[in-house]
Every structure is written in structure tokens, then in C-alpha cells.
């Protein structure tokens, strides 16, 4: 299994024109949809916020996968591990701030 893994990573070690173009087209589509949601007024309130953030996260994954080559990393996946650490801290800071400052009305 490790062997097939390594041949796979040699094949598209640094990406190809095809993978970059697919990534670019995906990112264009993932940008147009949220713009359409806003300009068309399709969604309101919380569902709008959730949908927009979802498209942002998908865009992030596309960039990591097609442009930053995170999937091609070799076994001790230090890049991925440090990314997870960064994202955990990000979520704690952002979600924690929102929870305390926006929804904890006792503080007011």
C-alpha cells in the first residue's frame, strides 16, 4: 500500500497544468455561487451566513489541495499537523470571541 502511495506521489509530485486549471475553475465557481446568493437575495439570516462560510471553507480546501499540494506530503505529515494546530487555535479565538461577546447577554 505504501508502495502504490509513493508511485502516485511521484506521478504528480508538483501538480500539473490540469490540476491547477481544475483548481482555478473550482475556485471561480465557489466564488460566483456566494456572490449570486447575495445579489439574488436567495437566503436570509443564519442560513445565509452558514452557506457563505461553507463556500469559504470549500474554497480553502480547493486551494490547499490543488495549489498548496497538501495531499502530496510524505508520511510524517508535519504540514498537516501544524495546520490542524493553527486551525484549532483559529476556531477557539473566533468562536470563543463570538460566543462571549455576542451571545452572552449576561455581560451587558
Amino acid at each position: 500500500m505504501a508502495h502504490t502511495d509513493s508511485t502516485h506521489s511521484v506521478e504528480d509530485n508538483h501538480g500539473s497544468l490540469k490540476s491547477y486549471t481544475i483548481g482555478f475553475l473550482c475556485s471561480i465557481v465557489l466564488t460566483i455561487i456566494p456572490i449570486a446568493i447575495i445579489l439574488g437575495g436567495w437566503l436570509e439570516g443564519t442560513s445565509k451566513a452558514v452557506a457563505l462560510m461553507m463556500f469559504g471553507v470549500l474554497q480553502f480546501i480547493v486551494q490547499l489541495y490543488f495549489f498548496m499540494h497538501l495531499r502530496e506530503e510524505k508520511k510524517p505529515r508535519y504540514n498537516l499537523i501544524s495546520l490542524v494546530l493553527g486551525l484549532v487555535i483559529l476556531v477557539v479565538i473566533v468562536a470563543g470571541s463570538m460566543w462571549i461577546m455576542l451571545y452572552n447577554m449576561v455581560a451587558l
Binding site: 508538483h14 501538480g15 500539473s16 497544468l17 491547477y20 486549471t21 483548481g23 482555478f24 475556485s27 471561480i28 466564488t31 486551494q63 490543488f66 495549489f67
Partner: peptide, 13 residues
């Protein structure tokens, strides 16, 4: 900016 991200990828290619 999206396009520049793509052209940056082409530079790496």
C-alpha cells in the same frame, strides 16, 4: 486575486 493565484501556480509549473 484568484487569477493571480492561478498564474502563481503556472509559475511553479
Amino acid at each position: 486575486l484568484l487569477t493571480s493565484s492561478y498564474t502563481c501556480g503556472l509559475a511553479v509549473l
